[in-house]
Amino acid sequence: MPDGTSILEGVKMSTTLQSSTTEIEKESKPGFNWQSLSPYGFLLPFLIIFSVFGIFPLLFSVFLSFHQWNPVEGLSAMSYVGTENYYIALTDPWLWRSLKNTFWLAITSGVAQHLVAIPVAYVLVSMSDRLRHWLTSAYFLPFITSTVAASLIFFNMYSPNSGIINQALIALADSSYLGWAFGWVNDYQPIRWLENADMLKPSIAFMVFWKYTGFNIVLYTTGLMTIPKEILEAARMDGANAFHRFWHISLPMIRPFVFFAITMTIIGNLQLFEEPFVLTRGSGGTGQAGLTISMYLYKVGWEWLEMGTASAISWLLFALIAFFTSIQFIFFGKKGLQGH
């Protein structure tokens, strides 16, 4: 999510733009001033790329969402169909199924990420710099690696008979020490993590959890490190135990970080594409149990070649993301942004 990570920064900066101090006043010369064009010269690449690949296509996709068009047949094959694309999309059971899947995945993996990341970060900050750095580096590793590569590895690890996950579970169930706790798992072997419609979503969610928890741990660790040591020390002297210090001091003080991290998770998880795409071999899984809204959009546009309907779906998805992000802003944003 290279574009998403800086939304807050952008919002903040747009308000401080006017008060920027390094601006250079241009001397006004009589006649046409070529110098006044130089800022546009510097901005030229941005302006061209932004209008060609940003604004124009976006406007065009609004237009397209009211047309029927198969991209293979060329531009002349485009015909006006009114709101039919939206109607087709909204009445397709696959859309609702994929929406349901997307929410399930977003909530399950999202909640788990934050419930694990915050306590882990809290423990990490009390450790030595060296150990903390090593652990953080390990947790962060999945975030920087290619999702496709990682999904292929998980695809292999999830395989029913030869996958390491099932093998490990069998080994645990058969072991003399832990057999009492894991024995029941053997009744379900071989577990079909990716073939069974009930197991597919948890399997995808687990991989998403694995990939992004490290990112959140880093965010929260950074947040917790900004809390002045004196405050925590003072609370400790007053008799607050570790849990109280966490609940009443640390957690409220990292609220802006929590707010930001959760916003990122919402936006990212609603667009989940590569993990389910590779784990279900592009099919969406048994009974479309792993079909996300982004995958559905891809299928409609590039497999069924209905670009008009796909555009309509992308605008529905946009409305959805905008809706949930603004709810998040309205209910938690004010407090979240104010911080302590």
């Binding site: 574009d3 800086s6 939304i7 976006l58 667009q271 992308s314 998805l317 993301i321």
Partner: peptide, 11 residues
């Protein structure tokens, strides 16, 4: 920046 990458895929 508010426009998610998936949305701009078709354009």
């Amino acid at each position: 920046m508010m426009i998610p990458p998936v949305l701009s895929l078709i354009p």
